[in-house]
Amino acid sequence: MIKNTTIEVVPGKLTLIVGPSGSGKSTLLSMLSGLLRPDQGEVRALGVNLWAQNENALDRFRLEHCGFVFQGFNLFNALTAHENVALPLQYLGVSSTEAHQRAKKALQEVGLEPRSHLRPAELSGGEKQRVAIARALVKNPEMIFADEPTSALDKVNGEIVIELLKRITRDHGATVLGVTHDPRLLSHADRVIELEDGEVVRDTATTAPNHPSKDNPHATS
């Protein structure tokens, strides 16, 4: 349960939520990303009160403005990496030609374009997560939410993934908010929010430099 908590998440910074198991990390992430309705309070993003919207409007908001990276990759095994990345663009009504080009560019950005013809079963865990990041990135979202993005990866691949998220924050000016148990990631963050029993007990900005960002609103819960 999240309680007595108000936070503002700003663009152009990689923000990580940490805390012991059961502290409410994933619950808070789900509330801020429009996946879980809070019992009270509100969440505002891009000037929209998310939980004042009906389900169709909320689905559309997530589709148009949010990218998601999950612990379990959530890739379709029957599709190639390229097809997995291009898939969200179909729901946005993007032409097949443009979807192909954007998927290719997103896979190039995560260093996987040469392996874009492979299916998930033919990729390593680190490569699958990079495909998932490309899929989130292909929509050019203002906000990216990452739930334990490195927990299934070894040290080397975990470093690659967190560096990708940090670079996306810098180069795209996106708001990137992640949940992690991995202490190795904290040095990469611009900001670390620590939860205990559903409340923020520490909110620390690191010494990482600020980067230019889009005019992107915050989320408050």
Rank of each mutant, 00 (worst) to 15 (best):
M1D: 10
M1H: 08
M1P: 08
I2F: 06
N4W: 02
I7D: 03
I7A: 05
V9S: 10
V10C: 06
K13W: 00
L16K: 02
V18H: 01
P20F: 13
P20N: 11
S21H: 12
S26N: 02
T27C: 12
T27M: 07
L29C: 03
M31P: 01
L32A: 03
L35F: 10
L36R: 04
Q40H: 12
Q40Y: 10
E42G: 10
A45S: 14
L46V: 00
V48N: 01
V48A: 02
N49K: 11
N54S: 01
E55Q: 15
L58M: 13
L63T: 07
H65R: 09
F68C: 00
F68T: 00
V69W: 06
Q71N: 03
G72P: 00
G72D: 07
F73W: 06
N74Y: 12
L75C: 04
F76Q: 08
A78M: 11
T80R: 03
A81T: 04
A81C: 01
N84T: 08
N84C: 12
V85G: 10
V85T: 10
L89Y: 06
Y91W: 12
V94L: 05
T97R: 14
E98S: 15
A103C: 14
K104G: 12
A106P: 10
A106D: 09
L107R: 07
E109D: 10
E109M: 11
V110I: 14
H117M: 05
R119Q: 13
R119P: 05
P120F: 01
A121Q: 13
E122G: 07
S124D: 02
G125L: 03
G126Y: 06
R130G: 11
I133F: 06
L137M: 13
V138P: 07
P141L: 10
E142T: 08
F145Q: 00
A146M: 06
A146K: 04
D147K: 03
P149L: 00
S151A: 15
A152T: 08
D154R: 03
D154W: 04
V156T: 13
N157L: 05
G158S: 05
L164Q: 13
R167W: 01
T169E: 00
R170F: 02
G173R: 05
G173L: 05
A174W: 00
T175A: 07
L177V: 07
G178R: 01
H181M: 12
P183E: 10
L186F: 05
L186V: 04
S187T: 14
S187H: 14
H188I: 02
D190M: 06
I193Y: 09
E194R: 15
E196F: 12
E196W: 07
D197I: 01
G198K: 09
D203P: 10
D203K: 12
T204Q: 15
T204M: 14
A205L: 14
A205K: 11
N210P: 08
H211N: 11
S213G: 04
D215T: 13
N216V: 14
P217G: 12
P217E: 13
P217H: 09
P217S: 11
